[in-house]
Structures are given as C-alpha cells and as structure tokens.
Computed example of a mutant assay.
Amino acid sequence: MVVKDQITQQAIILFGEKGFSETSIQDIVDELGVTKGTFYYYFTSKKQLLKDIHHEYISGLLERQSRIIDNDARTQKEKIIGIIRLLITDIADKGPSARVFFREMHHLSDDHAKNIKARREDFRLNVEKVLQTGVRNREFRQGLQVDMIAFGILGVTNWSYNWFNSDGDVSPEELSKIFADMILTGIVE
C-alpha cells in the first residue's frame, strides 16, 4: 500500500475511534512510524485529509449508485433495493469511513462542505428520480411524496452506521432485505 493510502487509512481509523478534533497529525504519524514531514508531503493539513476522505467516500457511492440506476434491465423497485443494499453493505464494509463521512462533515471548510453537500444531494435526487419513474410506471403507489420517501430511505439506511454490527446476528444482506421489505411493503399484515 502506498504511504498516502496508509496515512488515509490510519486517519480513518483514528477519526472513527477518537473523532477528528481529538486526533492530531502526530497521532496519525506515530501509528505509522513516519514523520510529520511525510504527512505534509501528501496533505497540506488535517482538514485537507478529511476533505479527501469525504470526497472519496461520496464519489464511490455515486459511481456505484449510477451503475444500479443505469441498468435498464432492472425495475425501479429493484433499483431501490439495490440502492438500499449499496448503502448497507458499504457501511458494513467501510464502517470507519462511513462513521467519518456521516459524523465529521462539520469539520470541513465551508467550500469543501458545500461541495460534499452538493454531491450528497445528487445521491438523494437520484433516489427521487427512481421513485418518480416508479410512480410514473405504476410500480409504486400513485401520489407518493417522493422527496420525503427519498429522505426516509436515506435516513433509515444511513443511520445504521451508528449501530449496525456486520459481525452480529444479522448480515448486511439480511439487513438490506429487512429494510427493503419495510420500505416497500410496510409492517402491517
């Protein structure tokens, strides 16, 4: 692994465990046995590193979401299920990165936060478009308030970064199915 990637991964672990504010550059480099000079060779500041972590995380999600949405062989229902699965498995696979992404955004500079918020908004709007197409195609109930449904889907799935243990009794795939069933069919018999 390249040193820059090692610094990023170590920072993700420490930011996830201790938080951004409580983690110093010295903490990161001490864990890796490198110097601060090595850190500054790759990053101008701790905030620059945090920006890069956020950018990489949301870019990966948007790219994979696009592949789900652009698959014309899938119904809109299958696309929503795919997006739910994407978010849950991503949180399971990249737990510390997800924690940093959802919890530490307020430490970004205003310009960087604005950029990341815009990309997060793109993700949400993509979910809305799938829902709108599903309503138009009569896959989903007519009259749905798709903006609120999109917020609900993202709220349910994204909050799981806070409590979901992928090594626990429920696998990421099982949780994805539980959430998809709850969202698409409800809990009333």
Rank of each mutant, 00 (worst) to 15 (best):
L49N: 09
D5R: 07
M1N: 07
G33C: 04
N126R: 15
I178V: 05
G16A: 13
G186L: 08
K177G: 04
D52G: 14
A118R: 10
A92E: 02
S21C: 05
V3D: 08
M182N: 10
S66G: 13
R67V: 02
V100A: 07
I58V: 13
A150I: 00
F39S: 05
K114A: 13
G19H: 12
G16F: 11
Q9S: 11
N165E: 06
S24K: 15
T133M: 11
L62Q: 06
A113V: 04
V146C: 08
N162T: 12
G95D: 10
S176F: 05
G82V: 07
P96G: 05
G37Y: 13
S21L: 09
R74Q: 07
N71A: 10
R119K: 15
E17K: 15
R103D: 02
R136F: 00
E22Q: 15
G155W: 00
Q142P: 02
I88N: 01
L131T: 04
R103P: 01
V130K: 02
K117F: 14
G60P: 15
E121S: 14
S176P: 04
I81M: 13
A11Y: 13
N165G: 01
F101L: 08
I83C: 02
S45P: 04
E56R: 15
I69S: 02
Y42L: 08
L50N: 08
G155Q: 10
R99L: 04
L131K: 10
D90M: 09
L32C: 05
S66K: 12
R136W: 00
N115K: 13
S59Y: 09
E17N: 11
T89L: 05
D30S: 14
A118I: 04
R119I: 08
V127M: 05
E189G: 11
M148F: 01
S166Y: 14
D167E: 15
R74E: 06
D90P: 00
V146W: 15
V29L: 11
R67M: 04
V135C: 11
K129N: 08
L87H: 07
L61A: 13
F20R: 14
Q65H: 08
T38E: 06
E31W: 10
G37E: 09
I12Q: 06
E139C: 12
K77W: 00
A73P: 00
F39D: 01
I183S: 07
E173R: 03
H112Y: 09
A113Q: 14
K4F: 06
G95T: 11
G19R: 08
V146L: 11
A92N: 06
I187W: 02
Q142M: 10
V130E: 03
E17W: 12
E31A: 14
H107S: 08
L62G: 07
I81T: 12
R85L: 00
R119T: 05
L86Y: 02
F151Q: 12
N162G: 02
